[in-house]
Design a protein around this nucleic acid. Structure first.
Lengths: 342, 342
DNA sequence: TTGTAGGCGTTATCAA
DNA sequence: TTGATAACGCCTACAA
């Protein structure tokens, strides 16, 4: 098979016209006569013509492609955000090129590089857990490439951003736990150099302070994000006979790991220890008891992010001023945090 | 900012050499002297040169890109498979372009089209639930484009494929339920035109037959794949007072939906009704009781698929004979199916 | 309404 | 070891 691909020149010569006419006809240029246009389109179909986007993009200098860089695509939050982006970009004629970094800094650099080399029109990104500075991103921006961040963003960058109200979400959640009568509330956190974990911690801290409760060192347990890490954290706490009354985990995954680990040891939730997470991953409502968490509206975030980027791309000359959009979160109360200390 | 991007010509003229020399130097062509090479590379870095992959691909006719089309990226199975593919393609220098169809036929067609227009070197795909014939895929193959299918494949296509042993997985699972003493076992299925659901059904049927049990119409409930559909199916069964002793769901999602719905109505699992799913989604071990299911080894599947495609791409002239790889599944027994009828 | 000619940024071939 | 030239497939002034 593997026959040479047909080009506009092939169509042109068969029709006794020039390639430019074919090009115009295929692009529905209003100046071409309907009869030629129809002839061209018909023959193109018959010859199974496949436009070479590379050539077109090379010529025009843009290809209606948007690059998306996320830490992982197996997180409900990120797939939701991507779905939201698609709902905006597809109708607008843009195609997404999705890259995942697996939380790896080097991989993030490579993805940026690859997207640039492929001449995407703009980039949407959420930084990896390993990313501690933004020089590599600043360099991209300096090249004049449109870039918008969402969720995990870099404070030092002057770009448009879409974020959750992590602080408020964590604050409200902690407040809820306090209202249920829990006082010794521990916090499982992520890497604190990431805005999202920093702010969740701050929200927790604020609520505790307002209740005149001290957050001492042992109550903040860092880098507990996965199911396994959650289970391990519980083991340590039990070993040191230091079980809290409640745990607010910045991640649903470690929250669930903790919950399962507790239950396996015969510790009742929420009677002996309450648990709450963050992100409203689907499994949080499938556990027994259902886990209290914070909903993030990832689709909405994705939509806003895509809109900002497209506006930025299609703005004539001169960049728009960076916009920061903060999306509200919503507390989801389930049985894992029903109070027993009232 | 937005300064004109630097090209090999810019570098060449600054250095008083030609573009071809620069091109060769940047590609580590062995014929270029080390001194020029170093000079070129240094200046390229200083001028922040970004190679234009579009131009290079246009010229060479290939770009080391592989297109991946999956129904959804928020399924553990598919993200696992993609991770497996990346572990093969990245070291081999290929980049994945990931598209999701959302189970939509039109979207699948568009994705194929887009990948072809972008001149990918090959395509890996798993068909959407709506896809009932393969003409659109056959057309791609006829164009001489390398294509490999995995998981949800088309019987009528003569291409390499990587599949689970869905039949065996379902057979073993059903057998397990039978051994636990359950007899009236219902099956929640997906669209039966998809090989995966067809074969899971066949496996179930075979095991039932071998136990001299009839599978009558009411026992096969079609198109129950989501959590909501699972819950609805339970409502119908309860309404018609037709609750089975056990349910084997072809999807973990509907399995969990059924389980939650049952528990909400005070029906005990597995005492009053056992439940088992398929796919070993992470949440199946987070529920109470944990849900029996079938593990699919998605990463392994992804690896095999990517290997097959790369072999096919890099084979000189003439396509390799299609290979079919069948991956074993593994029964995961949890508390949702502990027998009570012994 | 269509044709001509040139170029987007690379790489490949041939010659020096 | 390097240069000159052409070509990949398309689009777009400009001209007709």
């Amino acid at each position: 098979m593997e026959s040479k691909k047909t080009t506009i020149h092939d169509i042109a010569s068969k029709l006794g016209i020039t390639a430019s006419t074919v090009s115009r006809a295929l692009n529905y240029d209003s100046r071409i006569s309907l009869s030629t246009r129809d002839k061209v389109i018909e023959l193109a179909k018959k010859m199974n013509y496949q436009p070479n986007k590379l050539a077109a993009n090379l010529r025009t200098g843009h290809g209606k492609n948007i690059g998306v860089i996320v830490p992982r695509i197996n997180r409900n939050f990120f797939t939701g955000a991507i779905a939201g982006m698609e709902s905006i970009t597809n109708p607008a004629g843009y195609t997404l090129m999705i890259c995942q970094t697996n939380e790896n800094y080097g991989s993030e650099q490579k993805s940026l590089q690859s997207l640039i080399n492929n001449r995407v029109d703009g980039i949407i990104m959420s930084v990896s857990a390993e990313t501690k500075n933004s020089d590599h991103i600043q360099r991209v921006i300096d090249m004049g490439i449109k870039l918008v961040q969402f969720d995990r963003v870099s404070n030092e960058l002057k770009v448009s951003k879409v974020v959750n109200d992590n602080f408020k979400g964590a604050y409200e959640l902690t407040k809820h736990l306090l209202e249920q009568g829990y006082k010794r509330i521990f916090h499982f956190s992520g890497p604190l150099h990431l805005n999202v974990y920093q702010e969740r911690y701050k929200g927790y801290q604020q609520a505790m302070e307002e209740a005149d409760l001290n957050v001492n060192k042992e109550m903040l347990i860092k880098n507990v994000l996965t199911k396994v890490q959650g289970a391990n954290a519980i083991s340590s706490l039990l070993e040191s006979k230091n079980l809290p009354e409640a745990i607010f985990s910045a991640s649903d995954f470690s929250g669930i790991g903790a919950a399962i680990s507790l239950q396996n040891k015969g510790i009742k939730i929420p009677d002996d220890c309450a648990i709450a997470g963050f992100a409203n991953e689907p499994f949080t409502e499938m556990t027994q008891p259902g886990m209290t968490t914070v909903e993030q509206f990832s689709e909405k975030m994705g939509k806003h992010t895509a809109k900002l980027l497209i506006m930025d791309i299609e703005e004539q000359e001169g960049s728009v001023d960076p916009t920061i959009i903060k999306i509200d979160t919503k507390l989801i109360i389930r049985e894992s945090s029903y109070g027993n200390k009232m």
